[in-house]
Write a protein that binds this DNA or RNA. Sequence first.
DNA 1: CGCGGCATTGAAATTACTCAAGGGGAGTGG
DNA 2: CCACTCCCCTTGAGTAATTTCAATGCCGCG
Lengths: 236, 236
Amino acid sequence: MIRKLGVFVVLSPPELTLLSDLQQRRRTYVAGRDLVDQGQADQAAYILHSGWACSYKLLPDGQRQIVDFQIPGDFLGLRSVLLRISDHSIVPVTDIEVTEVQTSDLLDIFAKTPRLAAAVLWAASRDEAVVVEHLVGVGRRDAAERLAHFLLELGARLALVGMGSKAGFDCPLSQYMLADALGLSAVHINRVLRQMRENGILTFRDGHVTFDNYARLTEFAQFDPTYLDELGPLLK
Amino acid sequence: MIRKLGVFVVLSPPELTLLSDLQQRRRTYVAGRDLVDQGQADQAAYILHSGWACSYKLLPDGQRQIVDFQIPGDFLGLRSVLLRISDHSIVPVTDIEVTEVQTSDLLDIFAKTPRLAAAVLWAASRDEAVVVEHLVGVGRRDAAERLAHFLLELGARLALVGMGSKAGFDCPLSQYMLADALGLSAVHINRVLRQMRENGILTFRDGHVTFDNYARLTEFAQFDPTYLDELGPLLK
DNA sequence: CGCGGCATTGAAATTACTCAAGGGGAGTGG
DNA sequence: CCACTCCCCTTGAGTAATTTCAATGCCGCG
């Protein structure tokens, strides 16, 4: 997390102190039980240290749209803190370790260290960019491109925290989750995965994604990772 | 704009001064010419005073996904400032009036008035909530629900700035723009609009949306405006 | 051993798209 | 003033992508 914010601003010692003070409230949560609930007020935010989580919205008719997956280093529920009523739910995909950040902590940070505040806003913007690209995929890409693009993005994000490479990554998601994330049916996800496997560009099996042909895959999915903003620090 | 940020924090005199100092660089732009370009660096942000704008992403194959429309009171291109390379383009839908906000202005605000910084982050979160709900619509609603929900949201947002009501609102969007926003073809938008008109729930004609039956429409679209966060100020 | 969650596959049905054609209005140049 | 063009809206017919329904197999777990 510190590494990630440090991508945007070079952090000073007092800022680092403030951050490590936060690390007190370290907690563990088990897979499958909601951490934040849509419609609830006064939520805390979290910083994810290990494991995967996912944020989603439930429709009244029971359908689910997964908005984003979070991996180590990501914020959870930042939006739930600022919009007083959370507009989404968050559930751990695997068991996770987090540190809790209270609303008051956050406002403290803003008052005391404006540079950290800017860094948080940057992190929020980058998360939003991910959601926007997700929207583009769901709105304008067909099933195969969408799935390929999504897995490439996950791979790139995981690579930033040392959990993936151009060869592939470990992936705890079920085909049902992929379906709910990509706006497709689980049946169709299955068919598309089969096709990609048979075409020799991507294999998803036993919780592991293998990029069988990374070059062909990026070209097929028209994947351009610019929006992940991997440039150096803006604020010295 | 001030009214809008004031929804989240009660603004103090020095904060208001800082905001009105910004109002110097007021500019006008004509419909149809891009204000911000995808892939460009060092963009400014803007505060929209009059007119409509839209932010979109272009795919390499020429398809367009409209991410959001901006109406008076909204920020334009906040994300473009923080992610140094803009991940999207912005084009005025009508002629617009804006004030330009430089990156340096924004960092100034963060350093001098942390409460304003929190308000900006709140505004960004609320924009993100809109994008997220948009994603839900594109991912999980069929064409009619999606269109209905979208127009209801626009109506609710416009009502907040006095430009719409439960009766309807003036809408400068073409069916092509609606299509690019909703991930549908323009032809299909046309058909769905006809159906809604014939069912007596909604009419879109000559640049005006009329909610012929607001209650039935909200129920059909399962529209719940919680995510627009219209509560009172959080920070006193 | 039975049950639940996940993956897989086929066939039929549905939704939305593409292609194609035509109409109206606004602006433009002759 | 007319012809022309461009943009937007409208509608029909055929097509393609994706869903739904249904059935089956595998595996881990109590």
